[in-house]
Simulated scan of single mutants.
Amino acid sequence: MTDDRNESLEERRRRLSAALAERKAEDAAEAKRDAQSEESRKGMALGFKISSEFISAVAVGAVLGFLLDRFAGTSPWGMIVFLLLGFGAGVLNVLRAVGKVAPSPFAQQEAKDKKRDGS
Rank of each mutant, 00 (worst) to 15 (best):
D27M: 06
V91Y: 12
G86N: 03
G65Y: 01
F106G: 10
G47D: 10
R15V: 14
A59T: 06
S56E: 13
R33M: 00
R15K: 12
M1G: 13
S51I: 08
L20M: 04
D3G: 15
L84T: 10
D113R: 09
A111D: 10
E26K: 03
L20I: 07
V81W: 04
L46H: 06
V58K: 03
T2Q: 12
S17W: 08
R14C: 13
A62R: 01
K42Y: 04
E39N: 14
A28G: 00
A59L: 06
R13D: 11
P103C: 14
E38L: 05
G73K: 03
S51E: 08
P105V: 07
E7M: 06
S51H: 09
D113P: 01
A59W: 01
L95I: 05
D27F: 00
L84A: 08
E53Y: 06
V60A: 05
K115M: 08
F71H: 08
F82E: 03
K115D: 12
F87Y: 13
V91N: 10
K42E: 14
L64Y: 01
D4T: 15
G99Q: 04
R15G: 07
A18T: 15
A29P: 03
G90K: 02
V101D: 05
G90M: 03
G43V: 02
V60M: 08
V60K: 04
G61W: 02
A31S: 04
F82C: 09
A62T: 08
L95P: 14
G86C: 02
S8F: 12
K49E: 14
A45F: 04
E22Q: 10
R96W: 04
F48Y: 12
L9V: 15
V101N: 04
E11H: 15
E39I: 00
M1L: 09
F66V: 02
F54A: 14
L84D: 07
E30H: 03
K115R: 09
G88L: 10
E10D: 15
L67H: 00
L67W: 03
L68W: 02
S52T: 14
K114F: 14
S75T: 01
K24Q: 06
S119R: 07
L85F: 05
P105C: 09
W77D: 12
R70G: 01
I55M: 14
A19G: 08
G88K: 07
E7K: 06
R96E: 05
K24Y: 07
A57K: 04
G47I: 03
S37R: 11
Q109I: 07
K32A: 05
R23G: 00
L64T: 00
D113A: 11
A21E: 15
D27A: 08
K32Y: 02
E26M: 02
F106Q: 15
A35M: 07
W77I: 12
A72Y: 01
P76K: 03
R41A: 06
E110A: 04
S75L: 07
E39D: 15
Q36R: 10
A28T: 02
L92W: 05
M44V: 12
G118T: 06
L67F: 03
F106Y: 11
E26R: 00
R12V: 15
M79I: 00
A31M: 04
F87V: 09
S8D: 13
E10Y: 11
V101M: 06
F54H: 10
A28S: 04
V63H: 00
S56C: 10
G43K: 13
S40R: 14
S104Y: 04
R33F: 01
S75A: 08
F71Y: 05
L46E: 08
R70L: 09
R96S: 01
